[in-house]
């Protein structure tokens, strides 16, 4: 499946702070939108269970004390070779030719869950209340809504992300923001050994070193006397002179 156009998210792990704003905005938009509902069961009880299209996980990498914390948002990657699609017995799961978005037709899905077995990322979540399989739609109902101003035609998670870790666009267009970000910042795909060719890419953590030289600690250009108490003059100063 080689699409001319392939919409995707590019998620910058160097920017993500793990605040879950994308998780909640996704749920808020989609549970009441075209792809909804995203039901919760026993939401306030002891054993809550619910459907989300997007999850933020946290990992610790390295060995103490040289560790780093990676916040890792995870949703459907809209794979270019989606293994979840051909296995669906009903044709409910499909990949749109026009823009490469992988969707589920809720009117056809019989809830056999076979597609979820064939996604290596655990991106599909079954809705036990309506009995159909659900997953990220890239907010297909927002991004195609021409009544919205063009700069708002983006997935809810992208608009919500406070530090701007999430980019959205067409990865087949070499001049798009996402293509440039992938090119310039070493964007990569998850689990290449799975052979799924995910459309979503991640930008790696980057080291931001700051070299501090000795002379920067000692303010050589700034004599100590300037930082000390100003000298007391007996008579009027120039300030006094200027304030009458």
């Amino acid at each position: 499946m080689a699409n001319e156009k392939q919409l995707a998210l590019v998620i910058d792990l160097n920017v993500c702070v793990g605040c879950h704003a994308c998780v909640t905005s996704c749920k808020e938009w989609n549970t009441s939108g075209w792809a909804g509902p995203l039901p919760d069961q026993d939401a306030y009880g002891a054993d809550p269970n619910g459907v989300f299209f997007n999850r933020v996980q946290t990992f610790e990498c390295g060995t103490f004390p040289n560790t780093e914390t990676v916040h890792f948002p995870k949703s459907c990657l809209h794979c270019e070779d989606p293994p979840c699609v051909p296995v669906c017995p009903t044709g409910a799961s499909y990949k749109r030719e026009s823009d490469g978005i992988v969707l589920v037709d809720y009117d056809k899905c019989i809830g056999c869950k076979y597609c979820s077995w064939n996604c290596p990322y655990g991106a599909r979540e079954f809705d036990e209340v309506t009995g159909v399989m659900k997953k990220c739609t890239l907010c297909v109902d927002r991004i195609t809504d021409e009544t919205l101003p063009p700069d708002r035609r983006k997935p809810a998670c992208v608009l919500a992300c406070p530090p701007g870790a999430r980019l959205f666009g067409d990865i087949k267009d070499p001049e798009s923001e996402v293509s440039k970000a992938i090119r310039d910042n070493g964007g990569y795909q998850l689990m290449p050994e799975a052979g799924t060719n995910p459309a979503n890419h991640y930008l790696p953590r980057r080291k931001t070193p700051s070299v501090v030289h000795e002379d920067q600690l000692q303010r050589a250009d700034n004599p100590l006397s300037r930082e000390a108490e100003p000298p007391k003059f007996g008579g009027p100063t120039i300030d006094d002179a200027s304030q009458w």
Binding site: P48, F52, F59, E60, E125, F126
Partner: peptide, 24 residues
């Protein structure tokens, strides 16, 4: 390492992102 793409040999999950249950 491949699942999140971090170039580390030693990776531990701190949280899967929720305390309840999910389909996964």
């Amino acid at each position: 390492k491949g699942a999140i793409g971090a170039p580390h040999q030693n990776i531990r999950q701190v949280t899967q992102g929720f305390n309840g249950k999910s389909f996964n």
